[in-house]
Computed example of a mutant assay.
Amino acid sequence: MNIVVGLTATPESQAATYAAIDEAALRGAGVVLFPDPAGPAQQAGNDAGPPAAAATPDPEVVRYARDHGVTVTVGELPEGADLGDALIDASYQEDTAMVVIGLRRRSPVGKLFLGSTSQRVLLEAGCPVHAVKVRVGPRR
């Protein structure tokens, strides 16, 4: 069995990756990371400029997984594929137990839009989806 997570250059993705490793350790599963081909520029909502190189697992993440007895592999997206589509497609694979996604805090107006990728994965996935938030301090 595998736990699937999207790998982007954001704190939300890092939180989701660690949560996926923890969940995989509990279930005796592996983790499959799908790097976002859009890169940091497009993740930030800036469509200008060429996409940056796809994210790769941080050595600390790999070490954390190894310390927890979890195998981490990097899935390949087809040319021109969208990260959301890759996560949804993976959710229908027989060996996928769960998809883990990272969510961020939003303003009241931003709450109208969960985030196109997150919303699509939550609504269209063929297996359970675990949504993770980055730990933050109390609201003021």
Results as ranks from 00 to 15, higher is better:
Y64W: 05
L114N: 12
A65I: 01
N2R: 12
V62T: 15
A38N: 14
V132R: 05
F34M: 00
G102I: 04
S107D: 12
V31I: 06
L122H: 11
A131K: 03
P50N: 14
P50C: 05
A125W: 07
R63V: 03
L114C: 11
A24G: 07
A20M: 05
L33M: 07
M98T: 02
G80N: 13
G84T: 10
T96K: 06
A20T: 02
N2H: 12
Q14R: 15
E60G: 12
A29Y: 13
P108A: 12
A86V: 00
V136N: 08
V31F: 02
T8Q: 12
P138L: 15
V32W: 03
G126C: 09
G80L: 11
R63T: 14
G137E: 15
E124W: 03
G39F: 11
T73W: 02
A29T: 01
L114Q: 13
A125L: 05
G30D: 12
L26M: 14
D67C: 06
F34E: 00
K111M: 15
V72S: 00
A97V: 10
E60H: 10
A38I: 08
A90Q: 02
E12G: 09
C127Y: 05
I88M: 07
D36Q: 06
G80H: 10
A9M: 06
A54W: 04
T117K: 08
V121E: 06
R120F: 07
R139V: 14
R63N: 08
V74M: 03
E12F: 06
V61Y: 02
Q42P: 04
R135Y: 04
R120I: 04
H68A: 11
V74D: 00
R120K: 15
R27P: 01
